[in-house]
Design a binder for these strands. Structure first.
Lengths: 339, 339
DNA sequence: ATGAAAGCGCTAACAG
DNA sequence: CTGTTAGCGCTTTCAT
């Protein structure tokens, strides 16, 4: 193995060494290329010896399609999101696409990043947890750039979306908390509105109303563990008025539990029932055993990537919307049926 | 805003509309291009009207450099790793690079993925938590593809690396556990060897030996929470022989704590001191308040990306190795000084 | 089955 | 400061 600095080797070099034309090299490296077995082997051998590799960017320029896709995600280092992103990346890769990752922070300008993606002629972009303005959505649509939105609701009927069924989520939380007969409910959710998180809280409240059951509302500063811990302070003060709490995210629920245990010595579910949402790994940890509703990240990603691939193949098809149902996970923060 | 399907607009179109040559369009879109203010504005205006965007892939082909980089990471949905990846991606982006994310699973063949990256003429690749064979490292080196390895030790002196100072880590853990005067130690670490994780455990053991203190060893199946929970079973059985435990990762430590509390009613630090490593968010949660050693992901990423940028600018420079020191975080699972 | 030639969208070298 | 020309590395008609 030599260690001399080498000029990048091109199809031309391979062609010469194999004693064929550049076209043949190209054919040798494309599925079902019109080439004899013999020539292909010759080319492959020469390529091997030279350490040749197809330049995908040049190929893409010619075929005018790249197998790059964008994944735009916020709060990437949050348990649920990181799983979502890992699965999405793997799913894309298994279909031959290469995901460009754009972590997105609350203050960032998502329009900008979508626009950047346009520069790379990506095959499509997956956006999770940021709401692009309808302007850029239109722009993507106009440019025929597939865009699929996860958990942002179907703002426009112009982009594909996958989202949880918020109404079902609200009802399910209600049922999980009340099946034991308890009926003094509360909900905790972040201040900042967002389709899926605020949506399920609102649906829960609606359900309570329709069942004529009063419900207290606690507004947290965000949907993080810390925000849950903070709001736990207010919840502790209201402990005598409630027996069941729905936290809009598991992370918040965990924070609430820790605060309530630390400062009020609350025991779950005896003193208070609590239900979270998402089913992140930590919800199942020994210190919590949180009853929650599972948002299946695998299913979500499969649907989203599927929509994307379909759209790439058929840009003119009408937008599709996948509504995901949550499944209840009963652990130790809810009580059993009351006969 | 029309909604007609449009052909992608090229610099040629813009040139024509602006009444200039294609070169001028190119110049208008490059930093410090040799162009008059007036012309630039004309071009920009035309571009705006047409919805033109530079095709970065074509540009890269010409300038023969892409601003794509690869991030190869395993266990992406693990707290520490996801933070690392988020920070790395952001850091790359802030320098104008676009990270392609390649989640890597234990069974995957990393050679393959590095080789794939070569197809995209990426400016470099950051690998965290997988050990490429020296063969591919050489290959990257030969091809002048910058490669920086995080926490894989300096196997070859041919790739840049950043890693924790395992010796310091081992000593620090020892000091944190013994400063209260306790001296019946143990360590828990995963079976699968890895530079940084196994390394710190080994360093801890070495330190114990050099201090003439016996140390029990618990081998877990992996470095996950679940593996910690499992191994907690064995640790519980040995509770009467130890008073201080070093867990090679926070995640394991948390699992151990939960198991020990559930089955042995252990109280920390009274019945057992415990020190983790990494300082993931969960270590600070109310149910744990784990004393640990912080591995500063921000610092790590800054160093790694810095090394990468330097190497891109100077491919021939000798490999550099950044040794990161851990800082102690005293929380509630260790005792105070013994006077 | 193979080669020649054209061209993807862009930038760079060279004139003017 | 601006236009012309050449060519990055590849695929793709179109002949042969």
């Amino acid at each position: 193995m030599t260690d001399t600095p080498e000029k990048p080797v091109t199809s031309f070099d391979v062609a010469r060494r194999a004693g064929v034309s550049r076209s043949m090299v190209s054919r040798a490296f494309t599925e079902g290329g019109n080439i004899s077995q013999k020539s292909r082997e010759k080319v492959l051998k020469a390529a091997q010896e030279l350490g040749y590799r197809v330049n995908f960017l040049a190929r893409g320029l010619q075929t005018r399609q790249s197998n790059l896709v964008g994944i735009v995600a916020s709060s990437l280092d949050t348990p649920f999101r990181s799983k979502q992103v890992r699965l999405a990346a793997q799913e894309f890769i298994s279909h031959g696409y290469r995901p460009i990752l754009l972590p997105f922070e609350p203050d960032d300008d998502i329009e900008h990043w979508l626009s950047v993606m346009l520069n790379y002629s990506v095959a499509g972009v997956l956006v999770t947890s940021a709401t692009p303005s309808s302007k850029i959505i239109q722009e993507c649509h106009r440019l025929r750039m597939p865009l699929v939105l996860i958990n942002r609701g179907q703002t426009q009927d112009i982009a594909d979306t996958v989202q949880i069924d918020v109404a079902q989520a609200g009802e399910l939380a209600f049922n999980m908390l009340t099946r034991s007969g308890h009926k003094r409910l509360a909900v905790a959710h972040p201040r900042k509105p967002s389709y899926s998180v605020t949506g399920r809280a609102t649906a829960f409240i609606d359900k309570c109303h329709s069942e004529q059951i009063p419900v207290k509302e606690f507004i947290a500063s965000s949907q993080s563990y810390e925000a849950g811990y903070d709001i736990g302070g207010s919840i502790g003060l209201a402990l005598d008025q409630i027996d069941g709490l729905f936290c809009a995210t598991d992370l918040m629920a965990l924070g609430v539990m820790d605060r309530l245990r630390a400062d009020w010595n609350v025991r779950f579910p005896d003193d208070l029932q609590i239900v979270g949402c998402d089913d992140i790994d930590q919800a199942g940890w020994g210190s919590y055993r949180l009853s929650t509703m599972r948002q299946d990240a695998g299913e979500q990603v499969l649907a989203a990537v599927g929509q994307m691939l379909d759209r790439i193949n058929n840009p003119e098809a009408p937008a599709r919307h996948f509504n995901q149902r949550l499944t209840p996970i009963f652990r130790n923060t809810t009580m059993s049926y009351h006969d």
